[in-house]
Simulated scan of single mutants.
Amino acid sequence: MTFVLAVDDDPAILRTLSINLRARGYDVETAGDGRSALQIVDERIPDVVILDLGLPDLDGVTVLKQLRGFTRVPVVVLSARHESDDKVEALDEGADDYVTKPFDMEELLARVRAAIRRSGAEDAPLVVEVGDIRLDVTERQAVRGGEEVRLTPTEWHIVEVLARHEGRLVRQSDLLHEVWGPGYDRETNYLRVYLAQLRRKLEVDPSRPTIFLTDPGIGYRLVH
């Protein structure tokens, strides 16, 4: 399992990163300051680091310099600093990518995946095949009967969470929490709408689903 270290002094950002990364099957650890981050890396080298520059103790660039003293782990900088000089400095010191806040989660995760791919540390692709349906979750490509099917980012997120727990029940509250975040645990109507959309696009008979199954009042599972 790919290990991601997220370093930021904002607990809300760390929580959001943890939820979204874990939903995609990553092993995640977080740190709120530079020294804690370096200690974690010293104990266990991650496969990728998401690093904020505005840390309360060590500056993020200092953390980056120290990391580069003993590891080539991919580092994706996530910072509120928009000045080109900051970006140039971070990239010159060995950052693999630079994303500015506020950020789009899907874009950030795509950049993380790209950094992992370049390093050769990527996990095996996640692919689900059922009859004439093929869901390449890693590449976000859905094919049914040889025809490509377009899924929205939210639909893919739901598919990914269910695929990571293939065959196992994912409770409604957990699925809502992982896809939409904290505060949405009771919005079960969201799931009904999106699962209905997925079934219309992918099931042979949406009224009698065989892939996206419902445990009434409890949750959902993906089977094949």
Score class of each variant (00 low, 15 high):
P182W: 00
G181K: 01
R192T: 13
G181E: 01
E178G: 02
S173K: 13
L191C: 15
Y194E: 14
L198F: 06
E203P: 05
L202A: 07
H177Y: 09
V179P: 06
R199Q: 07
Y194D: 08
L176T: 02
G181V: 01
D185R: 07
G181N: 01
P206Y: 09
G183C: 00
L191F: 12
S173H: 12
V204N: 06
P206V: 07
R192Y: 10
W180L: 09
N189G: 15
V204D: 07
D174H: 09
L198S: 04
V193T: 15
E178V: 02
V179W: 03
L198P: 03
Q172D: 10
L175P: 03
Y190C: 07
R186E: 15
N189C: 11
E203F: 04
L198D: 02
H177K: 13
Q197T: 10
Q197N: 13
Y190K: 12
G183S: 00
R199C: 07
D205F: 05
K201V: 12
R186K: 13
R186Y: 15
W180K: 08
E203H: 04
H177I: 00
K201I: 11
Y184R: 02
R200Y: 07
L191H: 13
T188L: 14
Y190Q: 14
L191R: 11
W180H: 05
T188V: 15
L176C: 04
P206L: 08
W180S: 03
N189Y: 13
G181S: 02
L198Q: 05
L176D: 02
A196L: 11
G181I: 01
G183R: 00
L198T: 07
R200S: 10
Q197W: 07
D185S: 05
L175E: 03
Y184A: 02
G183N: 00
L202D: 04
R192P: 06
R199T: 08
R199G: 07
W180P: 01
Y194P: 04
L198E: 03
P206K: 10
Y190R: 13
P182Q: 00
W180D: 02
D174F: 09
D174R: 14
Q197G: 10
H177S: 06
A196I: 08
R186P: 08
E187S: 12
L175C: 06
K201P: 10
D185Q: 10
K201T: 10
G183M: 00
R186A: 15
V204T: 06
Q172E: 11
L175R: 03
V193F: 13
S173D: 12
Q172S: 12
L175I: 04
E178L: 09
L191N: 14
H177D: 02
K201D: 11
L175M: 04
Y184P: 01
R186M: 14
N189F: 12
R186D: 15
D185N: 03
K201Q: 11
G181F: 01
P182H: 00
Y184L: 00
H177M: 05
